[in-house]
Write a protein that binds this DNA or RNA. Structure first.
Lengths: 348, 348
DNA sequence: TTGTACGCGTTATCAA
DNA sequence: TTGATAACGCGTACAA
């Protein structure tokens, strides 16, 4: 014996039909009122409005999307929790998307597999009006598929010639960092790079390596491969790499890390090894996240939040007016010296 | 003269009808195949699958939602970027929601006005299947509206008797912190609380105040109102409050802050004032975010990520089986002593 | 100025 | 095992 289900007095949410009925008009009129379009007599409009109030009617966004082909929401694919960097750009994105009346759907990718699933399946199909992809450089074939997909896409901190891209001047940023170090008299400079993802030709990590080369070359210094490591983009990665670098016989007197979190790891390694910073080791990071400030870490500051804002703005622009020629937007970095960089205390 | 629009060979995405047609079957059959339901002859199934491949058909989630009344996504309302705490719970939420195949829609509230807009309008109507609300205690009337709204809701770090709520044991956490301080011999203990939002009777900030009282009372210490401040839940708030506390004539020898970020502000204030920690001032925070580790800050650790995971799990459970009696889930905190707490160096 | 009827892409029902 | 058809709730021609 099933328990009887009391369907309490039709608790289904009101539809446009109900409104039309109680207002004594046709659905078309109600629709016109909702989207306040002209061509409705004031008296009728008020009748309808009253009915809406009375029934607590709210138009169903799903049904609306069905017609308009718009979901009014933006998707953002982020290797989310791997770097605080992303949180900062997310801030900017959120601010703008909220202001522009769009919802924000989060897609996290932690693994390569996840990333490929998003990239190849484009499972977001129809769920969002446009897509922001952060720090995940698509390779050429993926890029082409993206630009053919009909989905407005903006790349942040990644570049593809086929897609509107926002990038920081990574080579210049790295150059600044290394030149700062050289300026203090450092000659053996370690470089802890992040893992390289996707397209090697246009890549944050690769660009920073180029910046290193340039600064080194300009100063007449030799590039020494044993002084560069690749590590995960996080604290532990940085620490491990630094431990390696700093236990070499002729250890570097300065380390440039490709992200602040890696630099924090370097600091930890130095502490563990009893190497004092900046007296015996200079450290400089990249990003300019809040912890760099708290730890007095010198760093190359990226305009993270601004990038997020511009990205969101560009994306809705692109949605409103699709397609458009891809655009490349560059941002500059700023060297922020704090207390982890300085001259070498002990020379010969 | 408008430029001619070349509508390249019907680029509209394929529908279920197209698939049915090219497979030479009816739409019903295609639907059965898509949702791989039984009752389809293997041969037919393969024909359909082939047509799907050929046309690159992907079912439209919007149209699906139209019928199923499900969007397959969870909403999360967060006073977002004001505290790293939220990032941590977000991590947990994201992990579970992704695993369970739900999308995550972010609603940020920075201002009271925004919060009220979400709370009263419930603008999320039909856009998400359920709602996670973090650290925003709804008052009684709002709670009632929520529980009447038919929207599955889970409160995180907030409590309402009408809604499933996840809370940490704030009074016990605060008690532990203060007792630790007392154990070191501190007698004048400053307390920097966070701003109180919403319902005063069930409130994180208020609970922490109660914990303070209890520890004080137990040790036979007097509660001194001039030793408690309220500040914003961030670094600057903490700093300002600490500056105030520490410039009193008979300044506290220890400060308990209601969040780690506020505690970081206290550290900054102490540094600025030339007060060394922990020799002349003990500091303890609340949360256990990553910076507390980096800064060696003693703190009361909350299981943030776990809370996020449980919250998401509970929410989809609630969605699958609605309605259910509200549940109260409690989490315990853990005192983590690092290097900002210790005995008073100078007594009389 | 207003009402009617159709279509959006899918699932569900029911008859074949 | 299958195919036709009615919903779902809304916008929008088009007719009145």
């Amino acid at each position: 014996m099933e328990p009887v289900q009391y369907q309490s007095v039709e608790k289904m949410p009101a539809t446009i039909h109900n409104v039309a009925q109680t207002a004594g008009v046709g659905v078309g009129t109600v629709s016109r009122v909702i989207n306040n379009r002209p061509g409705v007599k004031q008296a009728t409009r008020e009748k309808v409005l009253a009915a809406i109030q009375q029934l607590h009617y709210r138009p169903d966004p799903i049904a609306r999307s069905m017609i308009s082909k718009r979901t009014n929401s933006l998707g953002i694919i982020v290797p989310f929790f791997t770097r605080p960097f992303f949180m900062e750009v997310l801030r900017g994105v959120e601010a703008v998307s909220a202001q522009l009346g769009h919802e924000l759907v989060l897609y996290n990718v932690e693994t390569h597999a996840q990333r490929d699933r998003y990239f190849s399946g484009l499972p977001i199909h129809r769920k969002v009006d446009g897509l922001l992809i952060v720090s995940l450089p698509p390779d050429d074939s993926i890029s082409r598929r993206f630009s053919d997909s009909g989905m407005p896409i903006v790349l942040v901190d990644a570049y593809s010639p086929l897609i509107t891209s926002l990038v920081v001047n990574n080579v210049e940023g790295a150059y600044k960092a290394v030149r700062c170090l050289i300026g203090y008299g450092h000659r053996r400079i370690g470089f802890i790079n992040g893992e390289i993802e996707g397209n090697f030709r246009f890549n944050q990590a690769n660009d920073r390596l180029i910046g290193l080369h340039r600064a080194l070359g300009e100063a007449g210094l030799l590039f020494e491969p044993e002084l560069v490591c690749i590590s995960e983009w996080n604290r532990n990665g940085g620490k491990l790499a630094a431990l390696h670098l700093l236990s070499q016989p002729n250890r570097p007197t300065a380390i440039f890390a490709a992200s602040d979190m890696q630099a924090v790891g370097v600091l930890e390694a130095a502490k563990e090894l009893g190497i004092s910073v900046p007296e015996h080791l200079s450290v400089i990071g990249f990003d300019g996240i809040e912890v760099s400030e708290l730890l007095e870490l010198s760093t190359v500051q990226q305009p993270m939040r601004e990038m997020g804002e511009v990205a969101a703005t560009k994306l809705v622009e692109l949605i409103e007016n699709y397609p458009q020629a891809p655009e490349l937007i560059r941002f500059d970095t700023q060297l922020v010296e704090r207390h982890t960089t300085g001259p070498i205390a002990v020379t010969l």
